[in-house]
Design a protein around this nucleic acid. Structure first.
Lengths: 194, 194
DNA sequence: TACGATACGGACCGGCGGTCCGCTTAATCG
DNA sequence: CGATTAAGCGGACCGCCGGTCCGTATCGTA
């Protein structure tokens, strides 16, 4: 009844597919330019392998995204302040949003691909649920703070992948400029520090 | 060299297609469930007609969206305060965002279909450009206000169709609750009124 | 009414995500 | 080690969708 370990070749292929998909998404401007067949070919496997390993297109992208996100998640859950636990909400909230923003900047293609996957809104993924829950909890502990639930959503919305891509691309906003804008915006919504 | 008026049947068919598409999108939960063939059939025309009139899927959805948006645009550009011109930014900004939110609530399916259309990010449409430009201009006139450009984007991001749909659907947030949450959020980012 | 321009419509196409099944190969066991 | 077996493989195949094409029908005009 225990989970049986996967075969060696299966594990190797899985990794190859993830790597291939990663580079392909990074190379192409629009996520839809990368087809499943492309990924399979680049990874040197058949399409069947790819679908058996990840279920469907969304599953593959999600797996990639979450693998990349893992270090950030770790920093947030057990890293040092101000990002890690234990730091006061007024410091941790901006740190958290900055981390999300940086992640999206560093993984534009992936985030775009994921948020844009037709089926299932980005709001039903569990990583979104985690960010939102944590943010909400922190906001609730800010004295005189705004409605935590909505504010958490609104702040996260400011880091949407396509917005970030637009600001970086069309507007030519640099990484640091964007970070400081977001920090300022976050500070405002937290309100004056009494 | 003048623009030749379209033939009567062409105009009628165009209207029929828009109407059919509207009801179909309204009926279905997920925009992708509505295919071009469905729309053509519901409108009682051939697929060719549909594509000749609107170019492609995105064009059709955009046309629908903008037709619906027209009254709101009119209210904003030449209506009475606080939504119309002439009212002070501190009143007009929240009014504007409230109007956008209400529009998205009333046209969830359309907004979803449009924002989710794979090709072209929602940030390159001209209605977005208009909202953003106006909002930015208003924010610049708020004394001691935040960075206008980024803030305008961030505020609009809080009214993204899929977020609105999520809040209304999963969270069961009522229309009025959402409006008041957004109003509160907006007020916060505008800062204390000195 | 006759004629040119315009629009119609549905058969058709290319390409995509996803499936299926005969073959290969890794793991296990005597 | 060789035999056995289940897990994994891969690419031909399928259904569907957005988009095109062109012979035919209809509108507007004189």
């Amino acid at each position: 009844m225990a989970d049986r370990r996967p075969r060696k070749d299966a594990a190797r292929n899985r990794a190859a597919v993830l790597a291939a998909a990663d580079t392909l998404f990074a190379r192409c401007e629009h996520p839809d330019d990368v087809t499943m067949a492309d990924i399979a070919a680049a990874a040197g496997v058949g399409k069947g392998t790819l679908f058996r390993a990840f279920g469907d297109r969304t599953g593959l992208i999600r797996a990639l995204y979450e693998a990349r996100l893992e270090p950030v998640r770790a920093s947030v859950e057990e890293g040092p302040p101000p990002l890690g636990p234990g730091s006061p909400p007024r410091l941790r909230v901006p740190a958290l949003l900055d981390a999300v923003l940086c992640f999206k900047l560093d993984n534009r293609h992936l985030a775009l691909a994921l948020e844009q996957t037709g089926d299932a809104s980005p709001y039903r993924t569990d990583h979104y649920a985690r960010w939102h829950a944590l943010l909400k909890e922190l906001l609730e502990r800010v004295p005189g703070g705004p409605d935590a639930d909505f504010t958490a959503h609104a702040l996260l919305a400011a880091t949407r992948a396509d917005l970030v891509a637009h600001l970086a691309g069309e507007n030519g906003l640099s990484r640091e400029e964007m970070r400081s804008r977001l920090a300022e915006f976050t500070a405002r919504t937290l309100g004056a520090e009494d």
